[in-house]
Design a protein around this nucleic acid. Structure first.
Length: 104
DNA sequence: GGCCTGATTGTTCAT
DNA sequence: ATGAACAATCAGGCC
């Protein structure tokens, strides 16, 4: 077993956070789930017509793990690629900031 | 040097 | 526009 570091995070319950907070928050990359959801959202909703977000969200989640490592692989791949994308933001976040004033 | 935490990402749905 | 379950993430700050 790799290493799990005993349930880290806040005791085990997902707390809620807010949206954005930094001036030019470099924002991280998306997560495998994000890409997976992008593809499954159509399939899930297609197989469960008329279900509410509660169902879709949950089903989406359990289905996600239902996949095998290789199945999520393509998603993780994107996640990794997306993370790289974030690398760019954080890079600009480190570099940019001298002349580049707030962009938008 | 190793550890944690927080922030963030996107879907759906409603209000 | 935003939040909330669903899941991953993972980078940076900290002593």
């Amino acid at each position: 077993m790799p290493k799990e570091t005993t349930k880290r995070s806040k005791g085990g319950k997902v707390e809620k956070r807010k949206t954005k907070k930094d001036p030019n928050a470099p924002k991280r990359g998306l997560s495998a789930y994000m890409f997976f959801a992008n593809e499954q959202r159509e399939n899930v909703r297609d197989e469960n017509p008329g279900i509410s977000f509660g169902q879709v969200g949950k089903i989406l989640g359990e289905r996600w793990k239902a996949l095998n490592d290789k199945q999520r692989a393509p998603y993780e791949t994107k996640a990794a690629a997306d993370k790289k994308r974030y690398e760019d933001e954080k890079a600009a976040y480190n570099a940019g900031g001298d002349d580049e004033e707030d962009e938008e």
